[in-house]
Amino acid sequence: MLTLRNLGKTYSNGVRALEGFSLDLARGEIVAVIGGSGCGKSTLLRLISGLETPTRGTVELNGEPVSQPHPLINLIFQEPRLLPWLTVANNVGFGLAELDGDDRRQQVDAALKKVGLGKLGHRWPKELSGGQAQRVAIARALVTRPEVLLLDEPFSALDAFTRADLQDHLLDIWSETRPTLILVTHDIDEALVLADRIIVMRPWPGRILDEVKIGLPKKRDRASVSFEAVKRQLLTSLTASLQPS
């Protein structure tokens, strides 16, 4: 269970990136956070991951406060951010340094297979396509078995086909260990395909405008009538988020 209480971040240059963000996430829940640029979406993930410290409020995982990077919380960035001097397999095993060689190899192999890259372990990152590299980044985060997985617009740099493919793939992977997912995106369809709940944010300062519960089954048909209906509701809310307050 992840609890965010009244989170706020004001940067040293006076920018109020986030204000009064409170949210409770049950274990295994998938929450999407959408909104235009400047509404504090990325800042939110940086605060939860411990990369930055909040100026106000707290992050708690299972009742314990989180103030720095936590073993059970992992973050997948917008870019793959693979370490170019490590092979694909060693990138995936980056967070498993404390395991011995055989154990690590087994887990890395399993993780690579899970993201469909079982045969590419020996390659260099420069030899991968954008979609493959992002799969490796997903494997690297998953192999440490996080309880909370944060995704910062992870598919935004990919083409539409690869994106849809990886979205479905993410759901398959999620169904195995069921971590809590927080997905920041500016792609409404992506939020609708993946999330149980969607948080709509508005900028200056970044804060919650609306919360939409998606009552659709997990495997969603992007062309169904019910999907379209929820999408329309969401678009109305999003349009309101862009109006000046």
């Binding site: 990077p69 870019e79 951010r81 370490l83």
Partner: peptide, 21 residues
């Protein structure tokens, strides 16, 4: 900075961050 943040997400700091990243 982006590469260093990857190291920090995996809780590397000090000597290990220097050595591995």
């Amino acid at each position: 900075r982006k590469i260093v943040e990857v190291g920090r997400i995996f809780r590397l700091s000090g000597v290990t961050l220097v050595r591995r990243v």
